[in-house]
Each structure stands twice: as structure tokens, then as C-alpha cells.
Design a protein around this nucleic acid. Structure first.
Length: 599
RNA sequence: GGCCCCAUCGUCUAGUCUGGUCCAGGACACCAGGUUUUCAUCCUGGUAACGCGGGUUCGAAUCCCGCUGGGGUCACCA
């Protein structure tokens, strides 16, 4: 890893708050923080901002750490995460496919605390924050305040009614000693005494940004529950952990003057700031959990129109009926993430992907997501030999070339079609064996049914048959769906039957006749493998002096009900000889019935 | 509404700092052909953008101003 002499000790951090899954926006921030540290041979810290006691959870923390690791983002300092061993784990795959730049095989976990700067959970650092808060109070740079939430809300509403901006105004008759005495026995927050001066922020992406003094008020630095607010905690931790570069979303730009003022007041350094452009939905709205909720509701509304009872029956294992009804009935309500996840699995719905875990579940490859995310707001500015822009690269490339100078300023819309195309291209570039192992490890968690239907050599056949037809790992399910269908449950497409089985061509046998004929050839085949099957079908067509399509298409109809399937040899081998014979016989009977009934 | 940020094809963007090589390049999507026993893959070609108005200049996508539009933020959330 190249180290930059001008920046001998770059330290970056990603500091998620564990209130849910890792949002793609957060994932990109983490990626850039990681890449910047790697590029400069520096240190990347992961810190968990769990000062909101009510909303934080341990499971969310674990989920975020795992999603980062899945993308191949490893942190030098922070909570430890044990890596799954073995080449089949998603994490190991990420490493292999991104050029093996991740943890060496000997490294079984990421994180740690070599500099003794932890703990990395803010909830465990309360005393540290209190020391600094006390110092600010002692220096008269902060003070206790006793306003109730109701009072503040009332003032805010009043300001809004007057069409003015609410600013917290210190009581003109404020008496410091009295306030300190009162604070000993009364619930209170601590507010920072914002200096009466304009704040200048230098941002590596946006340039110079100035905030006039009157627009920043005395903000709370310690809540009534004793926990610090984000502003205080982030400033103290960044200083104590030696953070030199802060890369974060542009929604934080307006917080920066507060942080700079706090740093000045406490005698801290101001890190280099780089505010990253935001990421939106294609329609310009925010990418939020809500999108999933809305899509799911729309899906169910449509389904219920068709068959209400079936939907309720099918949903039953995932969600309480009352809860389900209440949610469907109230467009403003939102389902809990867990319930929504269960329903999604049960109904095999595809909902808009918002969180990293969504993309993982939908069958996107980690290196593709990383590539695509990097392109949202950054690009290497390099041409390929053929004159096209370089836009396909892996995490290792980003780690070697990422720089702040090439960050964009304007927000971008998340184009799933392009991500899908990238994913498809990457799958097309894999060989069948690599695809098979990649899919199998994914399917273990996300499509156990299909994995179970492909024992032994069928896994390789199935993946070879599906790969070229897949844009995501999940697509294997759609492509090979005919394998899972019961032999006796195939529904025949009318047009396909007419075109390929019953249509009469002067001087040639019908598809139905050819199908019946080829059945005997296939039934006697041993071994029943793709090569043998293809050879047998070819031989049969030759003997009957028809083009191969005249034989192939009827078989497809018998196999899948439609005139579409992966290559025949592979497809037939997947269903197996017995299944195939059953399907052909059933198809012949069904079509003969149609012919007899119709004439 | 106050404050702050942003503005090139439908979308992601190159080009903007260092004005001419740009009647603006690439990618995805879309459209039209071609290859293929089906589907898909694949190949070829095409449509398509400098938000508007003023400056500055011999010359502006590039510099300046205004307008318009979009976004962020205004919590004892982070």
C-alpha cells in the first residue's frame, strides 16, 4: 500500500449509529473512509455511536459490522468481528473476487485496539465525555439549562407561526452560580455557550463555507439522561482517537460549525472535512425504509384483489393477522423491519433495495456493489485503451487510487438498472465453477430450496445452465424454476403448444409425433448426462431429417410448459430421466386431449 | 420561511480549477439491425445534455453576476 509522505498518519473513521441496517449511503461513506485510509497507509477506525439509548440495539451493531465485512471493508481499530473461515463464506468470497486485498488468510477477525483508544462504543465512554463537559462548565463555556421539552416546543411553534427561525436564546437574566446550584438537585441539560463569532469551515469537496454567528445557537451537549449529544461525543472522540480526516454525508454540513466551535473551545485540532454528496432514489426522493414498506403494501393490495384468503393464509406464519390488517388499512403506518423481512421471504417479493443487506439478499455481488457505490460521487478519471472511461474496478483499485480531489459536489440518483447491468456483467465474466461456488454459498442463506434441488453434479449443471441467464444470484431461482415444479403440475402455454406441437407442416411430422418419438430414445439413454442427451437429440433429428429446433422445442414445452429453457442437455439432465419421461408422457396425453377435444 | 449546498444526455458521469483541441466523450437505459435450436448472452449502429438571462473575452460547458430549479438543515436523533 503506498504511503503518502505528506500525510504520514492519516486516521479516518466510520461512525454508524446502530439503529437499523447499514444504509447504502452509509456503506458508501464507510467505503470512502476506508479507501482514504488505505490509500495513505493510514488507520481506519470503526466507532459505534450508540448514545441514543432508546433506538440503539446490539443486533443492529452486529448486522452493520457483518455487512461491512461482506463488502470487504475491514477496520484496523474498533469492535472485533470474527471472520467465518473457509472459501465458501461470503466474506472470503469478497476477498477473492476483489483481488484478495482483504484480510490475509491468517487473520481471523477484524478490529482491535492496538493504540488503547477504546472503548469503541460511545455508551461506554460516558465518563470521558463528562470530564470534558465539566471542563467546559468550569471555564464558563457551557451551562446547565432547565427548559422543559414542552416549553421548547411551544417556543419553536411560536417562532414557526411568526415565520421566523427558532433559536435558543439564553435567558438575559441568566445567573451562572444560581444555575449551577440548581443543577445539583434538578434535572437539566448542558448547553454549549456558542461564541459570538462567525465560523468558517474549510471543506475539501465544497470549498470554503461560512456561517454567521447569529445562525448557530447554544446547543445541547448533554441530555437530561446524562448521555452526551452527538455533537459533543463526535468531537471528543475524534480528538481522542486522533482522527485526521472526517468524510461524512452532506447532511452534516450544517453541523460542522458547531463541531468547529466545540473544538476551538476545548483546544482540539480541527480535522480535514469532506462532505460527500447525497444519494437519492431515481425520483429524487430520499432512499428510506419507507420505500420498502410502500412497495410491499402495493404488492399485497394487488394480491388481495385477486385472492384475499390465499394472501392471509400465506402471510399467517410471518405476521399476526390483526397486525397485518392494521398495517394494510393504514397507509401511514409502517411495518417493523423484521415483519417486513419475513413477509418478503414468504412471498418472494422483490422490494426496493435500501440497505446493504437488501442487496446481499437480492443476489448482488459485494464487489459489484462496492464498485457501483464508489462511482456515486467519485470516479478515477482514467480512460481505458479503447477510449471508454474506466468505471469497472475493485476495492483494491479504490484503495490505491481514491482521492478527495475527484469527489463530486452534486447529489446522485441511485440507478438500479446500472447496478444490475454491472452485476450481470460480472456474473458473465465468471467461469461456471466460480459462479457455482459463489451461488451455493449465497443460496445457503437465501435460497435453500433450490440448493436442495441440486445435489451432487446437478449443482454444476444447474449453475452452468443458469449463469448466462442471470443478472443476480437470485435469478437462478427464476431460470431453474422448472426443476422445482412437480412433474404433474406443469401448465402448458397455449401458444407454445400450438406453435411447437400441433401445427401441421406439409410433408413433415408434427411436433407431437417427434416428441413421442424422441421419448423412447431418451428413455433408453445411459448415462443420462448433458453431453449424451444433446448427442441423442441431434442424432434423432438427423434420422428424422428435421432441423434440430423441430425436436428441441417440443421437448422444451413438455419440460417447462413454455418454449423457453436453458440449453436442452443441461435442462433435461437436471430434471432426470424419470422425471423427463413422466413430463413427456403427460404432455403428450394433454395435447392429444386438446386435439381430440378441438376436432 | 431562515441558513447552507448544488446545477452537462432519462440516469451515473468525463470535460470546468489551468477559457480555444467539445457543433461536448464514456457507461447504463432506450430504439433499430445482426448472431443464436428457445430464452439469455454476445456484436453493430442510432436517438439524446452544457437550466435561463446578463456580463468579461477575439473566443465560455469552462470565469463573474442575477434568476430559476433541486436538495440539505433548522431536536435533549445521529
Amino acid at each position: 500500500m503506498p504511503s503518502d509522505p505528506a500525510n504520514p498518519s492519516v486516521i479516518t473513521r466510520f461512525a454508524p449509529s446502530p439503529t437499523g441496517f447499514l444504509h447504502v449511503g452509509g456503506a458508501r461513506t464507510a467505503l470512502f473512509c476506508w479507501a482514504y485510509a488505505r490509500r495513505h497507509g493510514g488507520t481506519f477506525i470503526l466507532r459505534v455511536e450508540d448514545t441514543d439509548q432508546a433506538r440503539s440495539s446490539e443486533s443492529a451493531t452486529t448486522g452493520i459490522l457483518e455487512d461491512l465485512a461482506w463488502m470487504g471493508i475491514d477496520w484496523d481499530e474498533g469492535p472485533e468481528l470474527a471472520l467465518e473461515g473457509g472459501a465458501s463464506s461470503p466474506t472470503a468470497n469478497a476477498g477473492i473476487l476483489t483481488g484478495g486485498q482483504d484480510a490475509p488468510p491468517s487473520k481471523r477477525s477484524i478490529g482491535g485496539d492496538p493504540r488503547s483508544i477504546g472503548p469503541f462504543f460511545q455508551a461506554q465512554r460516558i465518563e470521558l465525555y463528562n470530564e470534558h463537559i465539566q471542563r467546559l462548565i468550569d471555564q464558563d463555556k457551557a451551562y446547565p439549562a432547565f427548559d422543559t421539552l414542552e416549553e421548547l416546543t411551544a417556543k419553536r411553534d411560536a417562532a414557526r407561526a411568526r415565520k421566523e427561525t427558532f433559536r435558543y436564546i439564553r435567558d438575559p437574566g441568566f445567573d451562572r452560580d444560581a444555575a449551577l446550584a440548581r443543577a445539583k438537585s434538578e434535572a437539566h441539560v448542558i448547553r454549549f455557550r456558542m461564541p459570538d463569532e462567525a465560523i468558517h469551515v474549510r471543506d475539501e469537496v465544497l470549498g470554503d463555507v461560512n456561517f454567521a454567528a447569529e445562525h448557530v445557537d447554544d446547543f445541547v451537549i448533554r441530555k437530561v439522561d446524562g448521555f452526551p449529544t452527538y455533537h459533543l461525543a463526535v468531537v471528543v472522540d475524534d480528538e481522542l482517537m486522533g482522527v485526521t480526516h472526517v468524510l461524512r454525508g452532506q447532511e452534516h454540513l450544517n453541523n460542522t460549525p458547531r463541531h468547529v466551535a466545540l473544538q476551538k473551545a476545548m483546544g482540539f485540532r480541527t480535522p480535514v472535512y469532506a462532505h460527500l454528496p447525497l444519494i437519492f432514489n431515481p425520483d429524487g426522493s430520499k432512499m428510506s425504509k419507507r420505500d420498502k414498506d410502500k412497495a410491499a403494501r402495493a404488492h399485497f393490495m394487488a394480491e388481495i384483489d385477486r385472492d384475499r384468503d390465499r394472501v392471509y393464509r400465506q402471510a399467517a406464519p410471518a405476521i399476526d393477522k390483526g397486525k397485518f390488517e392494521a398495517w394494510l388499512g393504514d397507509k401511514k403506518s409502517q411495518l417493523e423491519t423484521q415483519d417486513l423481512g419475513e413477509l418478503q421471504r414468504l412471498f418472494a417479493m422483490s422490494l426496493p433495495e435500501i440497505d446493504t443487506a437488501d442487496f446481499r439478499g437480492a443476489g448482488y455481488l459485494p464487489q459489484v456493489l462496492v464498485n457501483f457505490l464508489a462511482l456515486l460521487g467519485w470516479n478515477p478519471g482514467v480512460k481505458n485503451d479503447d477510449g471508454t472511461d474506466l468505471e469497472r474496478f475493485d476495492a483494491a483499485y479504490i484503495a490505491q487510487h481514491f482521492d478527495l480531489g475527484r469527489l463530486g459536489k452534486s447529489a446522485s440518483k441511485f440507478d438500479r438498472a446500472k447496478l444490475l447491468a454491472f452485476n450481470a456483467d460480472t456474473i458473465q465474466a465468471m467461469d461456471d465453477a466460480a459462479f457455482a461456488s459463489c451461488w451455493a454459498s449465497w443460496a445457503k442463506d437465501h435460497d435453500a430450496a433450490m440448493l436442495g434441488a441440486l445435489p451432487g453434479e446437478k449443482l454444476a449443471w444447474g449453475c452452468a445452465a443458469a449463469r448466462q441467464r442471470c443478472k443476480t444470484l437470485r435469478d437462478v431461482r427464476t431460470v431453474l424454476d422448472f426443476v422445482l415444479v412437480d412433474d404433474g403440475a406443469i401448465e402448458y402455454d397455449e401458444k407454445a403448444v400450438k406453435k411447437n406441437l400441433t401445427k401441421q407442416v406439409e410433408g413433415e411430422p408434427t411436433g407431437l409425433e417427434l416428441l413421442a418419438g424422441v421419448k423412447d430414445v431418451l428413455a433408453g439413454l445411459d448415462p443420462f448426462d448433458p453431453e449424451a442427451i444433446d448427442a441423442a437429440i441431434e442424432g434423432f433429428a438427423e434420422k428424422k431429417q428435421v432441423k434440430i429446433g423441430r425436436v428441441a422445442q417440443p421437448i422444451r414445452v413438455a419440460l417447462t410448459g413454455a418454449a423457453v429453457s436453458p440449453p436442452l442437455g443441461l435442462s433435461l439432465a437436471l430434471v432426470g430421466k424419470d422425471g423427463l419421461v413422466r413430463r413427456i408422457e403427460r404432455c403428450v396425453r394433454a395435447v392429444q386431449g386438446i386435439v381430440a377435444g378441438g376436432s
